[in-house]
């Protein structure tokens, strides 16, 4: 009997932690200053939150039915694989569109540098042409 109390406490903790992580991720997305900061919240916190919730659901149905189910595992695996890929594509899109950024955002990616082509003449490397 005490095992079931422990399992219920674990499931309740996982549920509350998942909801809190999902909320913190969305709060970061709504509150932070520029796009490159906003990308952090949903990518990491929301993914961890939904992972916690799916683990709680898997544990609950395992306790109820006596056997684990595959669907929650599939959803967790799929979300954990696809979240970094979509975040990478979103970051590439933001760099491609040259979104404005706050001063606190560090880093100097080559996509955001000015083009150097054609600004000053390059001498021909062969001597005698100069």
């Amino acid at each position: 009997m005490t095992l079931y109390v422990l399992l219920e406490g674990l499931i309740a903790f996982l549920l509350v932690a998942g909801g809190a992580f999902a909320f913190i991720g969305s709060l970061g997305m709504a509150h932070l200053q520029d796009f490159y900061m906003r990308l952090h919240g949903p990518t990491k916190a929301t993914t961890l939150g939904i992972g916690c919730m799916l683990a709680a659901s898997m544990l609950y149905f395992w306790v109820i039915d006596g056997q684990p189910h595959v669907q929650e595992m599939l959803i967790t695996l799929f979300l954990f694989i696809t979240a970094p890929v979509s975040a990478h594509l979103l970051a590439k899109t933001g760099l491609h569109l040259r979104l404005r950024r706050a001063d606190r955002t560090r880093g100097d990616p080559p996509e955001l540098r000015d083009e150097e082509v054609g600004e000053k003449p390059v001498p021909h490397p062969d001597l005698g042409h100069g």
């Binding site: 909801g19 906003r38 949903p42 993914t47 939150g49 939904i50 919730m53 959803i75 899109t93 569109l97």
Partner: peptide, 17 residues
Amino acid sequence: MPDRLLALDTMYVNSIA
């Protein structure tokens, strides 16, 4: 546009939750 796209992607994840 990427902000709205990020919001839509997060809405998908939250609706799954």
